[in-house]
Structure formats: structure tokens, C-alpha cells
């Protein structure tokens, strides 16, 4: 998802037209550094396209962390126990931290955080499609931690070795924090599956709704994902969408079975020869519709983001006033 290019064909064409001509010698030198597994640091020379790809990807990733707080935040006040409430609060707070580490990494590429946040609020930036689905019951919180954070981890682990130093370092920090996110979600699902018939039904219903969107988080199939080749060459991306998706499926199906959940896919089968789980076809029309803004919650998410920003204006004003007052006291 985070490495997925979510731009429309028109947006991609526009970007291609804006291409800058780079010095071939510098380009070759740059590629040689990447091939030697060196890290690229903020002040190093880099091709404009590398810089732009990273700004787009890192900011899209940061936006996903921030918007990702909304579906889960929906349940903080209604968590079933105090323990679950503390856990959920800590998790959502972590996601805010992840967003900030990533904005901080993006800023090293010469873009201002304000600018990126404005792009999001103006609807010009993309974020992971998964956060445009609603959290209808408490079981959705379990499903998100287990499946959504699980898919995110699968995607993010290779990014810890990506060629851009600040992004790689932010990802290492994030990955360290993510593992509790997945475990707490799975634990919540397992608890429901040990519960009443109604609780088991609720868990299965959440599984049914989140399974396919979670698989879509890895982005379109390799057969149509043209943009990946360049990112692979630059070591911004190290595995293809389909490879990562398969890794996630193989890890997750047995976890579902272990707690008695069914995978909502009549065509799912284990291939003894390859040792992989094979799924039925993914509905890519749904994916592209959600990218284009037709998900169940696209409007709500942006509305919530914008009003949080607008209603928080007084906090920024108060901080500025406080800073001015403190500076006055210091000067006196």
C-alpha cells in the first residue's frame, strides 16, 4: 500500500511531462551507490525523479498513519474493558507518532510538512484505501490490528532497508512499535472467538469485511503495476506487490484457522506442491473505486481531518502566544 502508486493515469502523464534532464554521469554514479547498498542521505545528490517519488511515497505513508487513527479512534470511548481502552489509546497514539516520524523524514527532502498536510486536506494527496472502510462493531478493532497492521508490517519490514536513510530509519522505529499492534488485535479477535455465539458471529463478520480490503492494501497485481520497476532499481521497493501479498496470505490463513475463523473465500486452497495458499480473484474494480473517492468513508475521513485541523487552530494560536510571552520574560 505504502509503496503503491495510487495516482490516476492522468496524474502520471502530467508527472512524466514534467521530467527533468539529468546529467548521465551523475545518474550512473548515483545508481552505483545504490547498487553498492549505500544509503542516500538528505544532502547527497539525487535525481529529481528519485526525490519526487520519495516525497510522494513518504507523505502518502504519513497521511495513511494519520487518517488511520480515525477508524480506530471511533471505538476508544466504547472499548469493552478498561484494559482494551488503554491498549487502543496507546495504539492510536503510536499511529500519530508514525505519521510524525514520516513527515519528518519527508521534510529532509525539501518539502514543508504544512504543504503536505494542506495537500491532504485539499484532497490532492492519497492515503491507503483501507481507511475508507467503516468500523461497525468492536470486532472491527480486532480485525484492524490483526489484518491491517499485519499487512502493514509485511509491507514495512523491507522498507527498513530502503535506500533513503531517513525513510529507512523511520521505518525501523515504526516496525519495532507495530508488532504490539498486530498482537493486540489478534488477541481481541481470539477473545471474541472464545465467547458467546453472538461474539463469534461478530468476529466472523469483521473477518468477512476486512479480509479482501486487507489483501488490496498491497496494491494492484504485478501484471499491471508498471511503476514498480524503477522503485525496485532504486531500492525504494524490494519486493513486488504480489510477493508481499502472498507472504501475508501464507502467514495469516493459519492464524485465522487457529482461532476458528473462516477465510471468506470459497476458492481458497493450499497448494501442497508450492507450499502456498491460493486465493480467488481480488475485486480490483472495488480497489480503484475506493482510490478514486468512492469508498464508504472517503468523505467522512477528509471531513474529520479538516475539522480537526480547523478546530485545533486555537491550540496553535495559544502556543504562539505562550512562546511570545516566554520570550518576553526571557528578554526582561
Amino acid at each position: 500500500m505504502y509503496t503503491t502508486d495510487l495516482r490516476s493515469a492522468e496524474e502520471k502523464r502530467k508527472a512524466a511531462r514534467a521530467k527533468v534532464v539529468e546529467d548521465p554521469e551523475k545518474l550512473a554514479e548515483f545508481q552505483a551507490r545504490i547498487d553498492r547498498d549505500e544509503f542516500i542521505e538528505p544532502k547527497d545528490w539525487m535525481p529529481e525523479a528519485y526525490r519526487r517519488t520519495l516525497i510522494r511515497q513518504i507523505s502518502q505513508h504519513a497521511h495513511s498513519e494519520i487518517v488511520g487513527m480515525l477508524p480506530e479512534g471511533n471505538w476508544i470511548t466504547r472499548a469493552p474493558t478498561f484494559r482494551r481502552k488503554l491498549i487502543l489509546l496507546a495504539k492510536v497514539q503510536d499511529e500519530a507518532g508514525h505519521g510524525l516520524y514520516l513527515y519528518s523524514a519527508a521534510e529532509t527532502l525539501g518539502v514543508a510538512r504544512d504543504e503536505l498536510v494542506d495537500q491532504l486536506h485539499e484532497g490532492k494527496a492519497k492515503y491507503s484505501t483501507i481507511f475508507n472502510y467503516p468500523t461497525l462493531t468492536w470486532a472491527d478493532i480486532g480485525a484492524i490490528g490483526w489484518l491491517v497492521d499485519g499487512a502493514a508490517i509485511t509491507n514495512q519490514i523491507p522498507l527498513c532497508r530502503c535506500s533513503y536513510g531517513p525513510y529507512a530509519r523511520a521505518m525501523q522505529r515504526i516496525c519495532k512499535e507495530e508488532s504490539f499492534h498486530q498482537r493486540q488485535g489478534y488477541e481481541a479477535m481470539a477473545a471474541l472467538m472464545r465467547g458467546s455465539k453472538e461474539q463469534r458471529r461478530m468476529a466472523q463478520d469483521a473477518m468477512n469485511r476486512w479480509w479482501w480490503p486487507a489483501l488490496m492494501m498491497f496494491g494492484p497485481p504485478d501484471s499491471v503495476s508498471i511503476h514498480s520497476a524503477q522503485s525496485m532499481k532504486w531500492k525504494i521497493k524490494r519486493y513486488s506487490n504480489d510477493e508481499l501479498r502472498q507472504r501475508f496470505i501464507d502467514a495469516t490463513v493459519p492464524q485465522a484457522h487457529a482461532i476458528g475463523l473462516e477465510v471468506p473465500d470459497p476458492e481458497l486452497k493450499f497448494n501442497e506442491e508450492t507450499g502456498h495458499w491460493e486465493t480467488g480473484p481480488i475485486d480490483w474494480d472495488e480497489f480503484w473505486a475506493v482510490v478514486a473517492g468512492d469508498g464508504p468513508c472517503n468523505y467522512d475521513r477528509m471531513d474529520a481531518r479538516r475539522s480537526a485541523h480547523d478546530e485545533g487552530a486555537w491550540v496553535r494560536e495559544a502556543a504562539a502566544a505562550h512562546a511570545a510571552k516566554r520570550a518576553g520574560t526571557r528578554a526582561a
Binding site: L100, Y101, S104, A105, E107, R113, A170, R173, R316, A319, A320, H322, A323, R326, A327
Partner: peptide, 12 residues
């Protein structure tokens, strides 16, 4: 070094 923050003054 761990990263950066935006703030209105050093204490914040």
C-alpha cells in the same frame, strides 16, 4: 539524533 519536531519555542 532521532528526528525532528516543529514547535513554537524550544521548551515546547
Amino acid at each position: 539524533h532521532v528526528g525532528s519536531v516543529h514547535a513554537a519555542d524550544p521548551e515546547m
